[in-house]
Design a protein around this nucleic acid. Sequence first.
DNA 1: CTAAAGTCATTGGATGTCCCAACGATAGGC
DNA 2: GCCTATCGTTGGGACATCCAATGACTTTAG
Lengths: 143, 143
Amino acid sequence: MTSPLQHLQSLPSWLAGRVAARGRGLVADAIAGEGLRLMQHAALAATAEYGPVAQADLGRLLAVDPKDMVGILNHLQRAGYVLRSPDPADKRKNAVTVTPEGAAVLARCAALAEAANEELIAPLNPDEQRQLMALLARVHEGA
Amino acid sequence: MTSPLQHLQSLPSWLAGRVAARGRGLVADAIAGEGLRLMQHAALAATAEYGPVAQADLGRLLAVDPKDMVGILNHLQRAGYVLRSPDPADKRKNAVTVTPEGAAVLARCAALAEAANEELIAPLNPDEQRQLMALLARVHEGA
DNA sequence: CTAAAGTCATTGGATGTCCCAACGATAGGC
DNA sequence: GCCTATCGTTGGGACATCCAATGACTTTAG
């Protein structure tokens, strides 16, 4: 029988949590110089892809609470990276779009985030890195 | 070129974060019935394994802030699951030990946590589960 | 066409994690 | 004996996550 702690620390949820915490820290530090937080970067990327998009849709895409999305977009809008326009088709919704400045900072942050991720998975060779990604993706999608 | 959101969502840090968030939720729900939080369970497991152990050592083992460890052990002690005794060899330290009640609830929680983890990695077959664990462990230890 | 139910953005509040700083008490190196 | 470090504890603050509720609006059902 394994000991209680080895038992706990060898649990997938524990290991994934530790790896995720380190990855989160690395990426956060990397893009901090651009003045963006993790979820601000994510919201900016999602907005860039889905063109005019409602806040609720962004929240569902990124698994972010609607309340927190308000603050995230407030920051992005004050920084001039996104715009909130009333949606003519549905007056409840905000149509969020990316500004040219937002696209520029997104490109820089994407590169920084990718570099941070390379540092995270540096202990693995390229083949193993692809394996890890594939396994994580299947666990994620199988939820 | 991949789209911005696909780019971000295919980053290891993002995928690990989503998997970890789901695993955390599954385990937290599983052991909630026993009245324990995630970190209380972890501290109990670590105490069970390392016998009389100082709070600072527990914090380093589990990557928990000493400030938060105070509250965690307060809860465990009030519930009768651990004891804090003065360490005769080093009067600064608390020698934390597990009570029989603590060992009993730990056994139940360990089983519940393991079941939750099986649900988490259910999309993978046993071979792939071992691969994922090995890769995560190497990324974690390579930090 | 009207009424009920649902959604949207927003606000408020609670909790948990992490970091930094301090304190008195104690330990170890010199 | 001094100096530095560590231990448990307290305090504060930044940040992420989650739940509840509100008013405006949309959709659906009768």
